[in-house]
Write a protein that binds this DNA or RNA. Structure first.
Lengths: 197, 197
DNA sequence: GTCTATATAGCGATAGAC
DNA sequence: GTCTATCGCTATATAGAC
């Protein structure tokens, strides 16, 4: 992510619009079904102009992953202002229910992109693990603070469960499944029992 | 799935080879990256001949989903011969660890296909829920027999956890995560506590 | 039934005027 | 920096000989 300086061209917002459109289209349609023509049209930018901002389709895809990464980091750093690690973890889980309609329709924005990147053959494939890694590492820090000796394991287990629930809820388009399981997930976030500490 | 009868053309195996090749390629590369030329070459069938067996690419994709469905049904009916419902559920979970290398590399064959079908726009999109539905319904029958009043909920929770673990293990290409979490999953399959019955 | 050759369309990417 | 026009390729799908 480059900063805007005086030596750079004036901020037109076109690059940002392209990334936003691409992010939304990739979320709804998947990576391979999303064409540059669709992205350009949605962002209201002429097709040929896309290549002024990105030298290839794959580079635009990397920008999409970067945008998701920024989104995740921003959200997690907001959560850091919540008082207790338990409340922070519960607030994290609650986030999937606040976008329940999208999750039920298109799956988890992070999880489904991760699955697709894992089958992608271009250069953006390497970015695949980064998204969930960010979330797992943050959750591990919370579990550590909560008193768990196996904080990384707890974090992977929690995020796995969240991802699995999002997958099933979207596969079945079942919002009540999502709400019920996330209630259970949030209830399960507790300080460790003494023998597990 | 049509049966072979005397009035039908002799079984050449070409259709079966095409479906097998398509299934494997879709698993490794994803739906949209897999071309008819690749499938035809892998199955050693001339490209133009594909259209004798399938009237469109989307129909071939439906055949891939049907093949996965048959695979699932066959496996689950094998499991039905296992003695106890608890052992049957554990044997189900264990299946993901027996194909651990594939899961770590390409994800769960059922889950990743389900995610992709959910973003697919063709006619095969409707087949998306069928795969996991089969597994969840089977698991619910086992939980019912085990004595759970909320067998469907238990089944959805179990399959969600399995899918989430497969997703994380493939995202991080982490075999030990997969083995550790599936140990935990198998240990967690038990008869209900009295107050939950 | 089988296979070659090809039609047709849409994609990523580029050239070059402004 | 911006945009139009278009190139070259590859994909699905078809036509028609055998």
């Amino acid at each position: 992510m480059s900063e805007v300086t005086d030596s750079m061209p004036r901020r037109t917002g076109k690059r940002e619009r392209l990334v936003d459109s691409a992010t939304a289209l990739v979320y709804r349609q998947g990576i391979e079904r999303t064409t540059l023509a669709q992205v350009a049209a949605d962002a209201d930018v002429p097709l040929g102009n896309v290549y002024y901002y990105f030298k290839s389709r794959d580079e635009l895809l990397r920008a999409v992953v970067d945008a998701r990464l920024d989104e995740i980091r921003g959200f997690l750093s907001e959560l850091d202002s919540v008082a207790s690690p338990q409340a922070r973890l519960r607030a994290l889980a609650q986030n999937w229910t606040t976008v329940a309609d999208d999750v039920v329709m298109y799956g988890c924005p992070i999880g489904s992109l991760t699955v697709e990147l894992n089958k992608h053959l271009g250069g953006a494939r390497d970015c695949g693990p980064l998204l969930l890694r960010e979330v797992v590492d943050w959750a591990a820090r919370q579990f550590r603070e909560l008193g768990y000796a196996d904080a990384e394991v707890q974090a992977e287990s929690l995020i796995a469960r969240i991802q699995g629930v999002a997958l099933l809820a979207s596969a079945f388009h079942d919002r009540s499944l999502l709400e019920r399981e996330f209630s259970s997930i949030e209830r399960g976030i507790r300080a460790p029992a003494k023998n597990a500490r």
